[in-house]
């Protein structure tokens, strides 16, 4: 990880216009990603994690979705203002993605070779033969046994874990600056999860790829990420270095999340802690702190106004009135 910022998301807002109203799936999100950094985005289902990453490469299905504002600066250029042609040259090339469900993310009608080669020839300008050699090399790196043979097979001939390895090989085949992994292990069973995470960590650190890892698992984040964004209802509750957040969580939501992880070293007969209540419905959310109905330390202002971001120093930011000195 270096100090060079390669991706800067500023005040990103993605709204979905549905019959019931406006769903503010992502509302005023900001973070920086440095070269070679691994950034985790955690949050519950529906907190806007996946919408964030689809917004970054401008792939929000529209209608009903619309990026209502903000900037996504990749190497200083705003991706939201780029032409479709220009952004296509970045997708799969400079910024690539892997998705949650490896069983459905590969085209069942096309050979692995076809699917890998088309990416490589498109972005790297290699001919078929060189692209195939490159694809085989990537499969080998991703731990697929006898890749020369396997590459000509179809996705249904691979297991779930193997398919995710193929996805990783494919996404890294153009040597991207950023890999966005959207819950890459959620659909896999536990033993395979660890293998896939190890593989991602090893390959991305070898290639110097920055990673945005989207997950709802704090365990995965703790093991993988340099920095962390905790999302709640489309906004960032807290962000900073992973070890600092785990050691001293500031936002009541983060505190609740970390308290609700079962721990072997402190096992006792007590019930596991859980945050009371449900995540809010994000349709036409009023301008309050979305967490206040579930928070133990609610103040008056929490119900009236969304907290401004407080800079706690050394790269830590929190959106909570508890830490806001200009509290009105």
């Amino acid at each position: 990880m270096t100090d060079e910022v390669i991706l800067q998301v500023k005040n990103l807002r993605t709204y979905f216009h549905v019959d019931e109203g406006v769903v503010k799936a992502v509302d005023g999100l900001s973070f920086d990603l440095h070269r070679g950094e691994t950034l985790g985005i955690v949050g519950e289902s529906g907190s806007g994690k996946s919408v964030t990453n689809l917004s970054i490469i401008n792939m929000i299905p529209s209608p009903p979705g619309k990026i209502a504002g903000g900037e996504v600066l990749f190497m200083g250029k705003d991706m939201l203002k780029m032409s479709t042609n220009d952004i296509r040259k970045i997708r799969g090339n400079k910024i690539s993605m892997i998705f949650q469900d490896p069983m459905t993310s590969l085209n069942p009608f096309l050979r692995i070779s076809t699917q890998m080669i088309e990416t490589i020839t498109l972005h790297q300008g290699l001919d078929e033969k060189a692209a195939k050699a490159k694809a085989i090399e990537m499969l080998k790196l991703a731990g697929i046994p006898s890749p020369e043979k396997r590459i000509d097979q179809y996705p249904h001939q691979f297991s779930g874990g193997m398919r995710q390895r193929v996805m990783i090989a494919m996404s890294l085949s153009c040597d991207p600056e950023i890999l966005i992994a959207d819950e890459p292990t959620s659909a896999l069973d536990v033993t395979i999860q660890a293998q896939i995470l190890d593989l991602m960590r090893e390959l991305t650190s070898r290639l110097g790829t920055a990673v945005i890892l989207i997950t709802h698992s704090l365990g995965v984040v703790a093991g993988m990420c340099d920095n962390l964004c905790v999302m709640y209802a489309g906004r960032i509750a807290e962000r900073g270095a992973t070890d600092k957040i785990f050691a001293d969580p500031k936002h009541p939501y983060t505190q609740g999340l970390i308290k609700s992880v079962p721990r072997l070293d402190k096992a006792s007969g007590d019930r596991l802690f859980s945050i009371r209540g449900q995540p809010p419905n994000v349709i036409d959310l009023p301008d309050c702190c979305p967490f206040y109905p579930r928070c133990d330390r609610t103040m008056d202002i929490c119900k009236r106004k969304y907290p401004t971001t407080t800079d706690l120093g050394s790269g830590r930011f929190v959106n909570c009135w508890l830490y806001n000195s200009e509290e009105k």
Partner: peptide
Amino acid sequence: RSDYVRTARAKGLKESAVVLKHVLKG
């Protein structure tokens, strides 16, 4: 709307290539 078409788009393929190569066969 399927996942594999999303993958194809995320790879940077042109919409025409997405449709001809990835959508029509299935």
